[in-house]
């Protein structure tokens, strides 16, 4: 029982990290809290399903198309909607949240509800660790989450666009003096974050069915991880997802499964009371040293 909880807790943590990564990236760079994030996640899931089952596109191409479409969606949302209200935090949240609601509820309106909406797993089957069985899909999630974390690190530290991301995140006006266009980089960060949501959807959704409600759960989980970890901090995301991930799995296994969703909400409430900037908020290291 304990070994199983630990293993599934770890997998749950990687799922949370995967879900929070894109949200955190967009916020860390452009300062925009993308509340359409859950909608992008669901949108990508349904898009892959439609491409696969209605249009008969091979799996690999469906996935690539879905990721690209999600990125385009993010890019467009930034240019068409967010730029008009940039700098007004509340308007940004309302605009993206409203848009997210519209996208998700449109799927419900067109009757995308039911158990037939599932994505294929990468590999069928499972292995046992001790006396705990774990399917290949969950292992794949853990591996992909770790690989993506590494990829994001390398991307932001060693490519031209990645360095511009870091520059805008730290000091927008100084970045402008080197010819870095803050609007374009903001839109790119939104596109990048949305593409990450699509990747998360493609990897995680095969575990269950694609449901509109899933979009709200994803948004709440992403928010919880980001708030607990400190928005914009990669280290914070990793630590917070491990904390919340294990807490959720222990709650589900030792208390009641339906209390699981409460964990992230309680975590948000507690952190906001005790340490509102999050456990690993931005530039903490510098403040503490000086």
């Amino acid at each position: 029982m304990l070994l199983g909880t630990l293993i599934y807790g770890f997998v749950n943590s990687t799922i949370l990290a995967l879900v929070a990564m894109g949200f955190n990236l967009t916020f860390g760079i452009s300062g925009v809290a993308n509340f359409a994030y859950g909608a992008t996640y669901i949108f990508s899931g349904f898009l892959v399903w439609i491409l696969l089952n209605s249009l008969g596109v091979p799996y690999f191409f469906s996935v690539v198309i879905a990721v690209i479409c999600a990125a385009l969606l993010g890019f467009l949302i930034y240019y068409v909607v967010i730029l008009r209200v940039k700098g007004l935090a509340l308007s940004e949240v309302m605009a993206t949240f409203g848009l997210g609601l519209a996208i998700m509820e449109l799927f419900r309106y067109f009757d995308f509800v039911g158990f037939r909406y599932t994505l294929p797993v990468f590999f069928d089957g499972s292995i046992s660790i001790g006396d705990v069985y774990i399917d290949y899909q969950r292992l794949a999630i853990a591996l992909i989450a770790m690989a993506l974390t590494l990829f994001i690190y390398l991307f932001t530290h060693h490519t031209r666009i990645g360095l511009a991301f870091r520059a805008i995140a730290q000091d927008e006006r100084t970045a402008l003096t080197f010819g870095i266009n803050s609007d374009r980089i903001g839109a790119l960060s939104m596109a990048f974050g949305s593409a990450l949501a699509a990747v998360a959807a493609i990897v995680i959704l095969p575990l269950g069915t694609i449901a509109v409600e899933g979009g709200y759960d994803v948004l709440i989980n992403a928010l919880a991880v980001c708030i607990v970890g400190g928005l914009g901090s990669t280290m914070g995301i990793l630590v917070a997802s491990v904390m919340i991930g294990f807490a959720q799995t222990f709650t589900a296994n030792y208390l009641e499964p339906h209390w699981m969703m409460l964990v992230s909400l309680i975590a948000i409430a507690v952190v906001l009371v005790v340490k509102p900037s999050g456990l690993f908020s931005h530039q903490k290291e510098l403040e503490e040293r000086i």
Binding site: R166, A167, Q170, D171, R173, T174, T177, Q283, L286
Partner: peptide
């Protein structure tokens, strides 16, 4: 810019 603007975390 004035006041030696740099990217502190890089």
């Amino acid at each position: 810019r004035e006041r030696h603007p740099i990217f502190p975390e890089s």
